[in-house]
Amino acid sequence: MARPVSAGPGPRSARPAPQDGTPGDHPARPAFEDGSLAGESPQPTGPSGEGSSQGSRKGWKGLATPLGILAAVAGAFAYVGTVDPNEPGHYPVCPLLKLTGTFCPGCGGLRSAHAFVHGDLGAAFSANAVATAGYFLFAVVWVLWLVRAWRGQPLRIRLAPAWWWGIGTLLLVFTVVRNLPFGSALAP
């Protein structure tokens, strides 16, 4: 039995599926980023069938980027832990605070990092609660990234637009509340 062929230049998913059991397009199954269809394994692309060289760096070779990022973040925290932001003159003043007297969502972040490095979580949280929560979130994402890199899998975190709107709303509410009299506990 002959396979039906689309006469027009339309997309592949618009072609009807073959009725004779031959492999063909499967419009009901979604395609993944590597071009394979759901339920099928991707075809090997390397010389010995090990996959592409970009995503298959397993073991120690795949850890270079996550460990480099950790080293940079640890260096920044070490500097802030050594050079006290509570003493004036070491760091620039927040421009929004200097011009308007209003705390931005980042105000107190350096003091929070300094307290965090010294193990004072209460002072870190009172200096900037969002930044302190961000330190823990970074640690969780970094560990996930490290595990996936060890396995040779890329880290892909995609947030839906609703999440981005939620994060923006949280930062806006945090900024407004920390500048009001009843939210003075959130001010640095």
Rank of each mutant, 00 (worst) to 15 (best):
A2F: 06
R3V: 15
P4G: 08
P4D: 15
G8F: 07
P9L: 14
G10M: 09
A14C: 11
A14K: 10
R15I: 09
P16G: 09
P16E: 15
A17P: 08
R29G: 05
P30A: 14
A38N: 07
G39P: 02
G39F: 06
P42V: 01
Q43T: 09
Q43V: 13
Q43I: 11
T45W: 05
T45F: 03
S48R: 15
G49P: 02
S52K: 07
S53V: 09
S53M: 10
G59Y: 08
K61T: 12
A64M: 09
T65S: 08
A71C: 08
A74V: 09
A74P: 04
A78E: 09
G81A: 12
N86M: 11
E87K: 12
P88W: 10
V93A: 13
L99R: 10
L99E: 15
T102C: 03
F103V: 04
P105D: 02
G106T: 13
G109Y: 03
R111H: 03
R111D: 01
H114N: 14
D120C: 11
F125C: 07
S126L: 08
A133V: 13
A133I: 14
L137D: 01
F138R: 03
F138I: 07
A139F: 04
W142L: 05
R148I: 03
R151Y: 06
Q153A: 12
P154R: 05
P154M: 04
V176M: 03
N179D: 02
A185T: 10
P188W: 09
P188H: 08
